[in-house]
Amino acid sequence: METASITFITGGVRSGKSSFAEKTAVKKALEIDGGLHYIATSKSADEEMEERIRNHQKDRNESGYLWNTWEQPVNIESLAFYFKKNDVILLDCLTTLLSNELFSQDTGWSDTYSKKDEVFNRIWNGIKAIEKNCHHLILVSNEVFFDPLHEETELLFTYCQLMGKLHQQIVSTAENAYLVEAAIPLLMKGAK
């Protein structure tokens, strides 16, 4: 597959991947005098989540650049239509998007299990559609693959399997891929 104008950024919790992603987005937007968009996939379900969201919002406001924020917990493809060729889009983060897609209220777990391919395609098609309609897409995700997994724990197993499949697909087409370790971005793919 051809290289897509995608930057993939992953790392552990609180590794500084979001702020690195924001800086990357601002830089890309400045280069072309383009618009900045932020797709938030988290639902503010509890206070802790709300605080995290507020912190991220504060950082973006203080960055001095104008961000358009879209709250889109599922079905990101529906946003593609709103973007323009000189927009830079940051999506934070894929792990939440996948949980939302897998565990959305209208599907039971047994249902979800049989819908694995559908969920994968929905997310991947959404990414492709947005990428086509913008200048550059930055995708933030999390490293979630280092726990002992059991096939018996079907739910976690399926989640990680799908997440891994998505990450592999994204990395294989992305222009750049970074792993952020303790706020240090390691370039895994592409040129600086």
Binding site: F145, L149, C160, Q161, G164, H167, Q168
Partner: peptide, 9 residues
């Protein structure tokens, strides 16, 4: 490498 990272492939 971590699980589901494409080691087999």
């Amino acid at each position: 490498g971590g699980a589901f990272n494409g080691k087999r492939k």
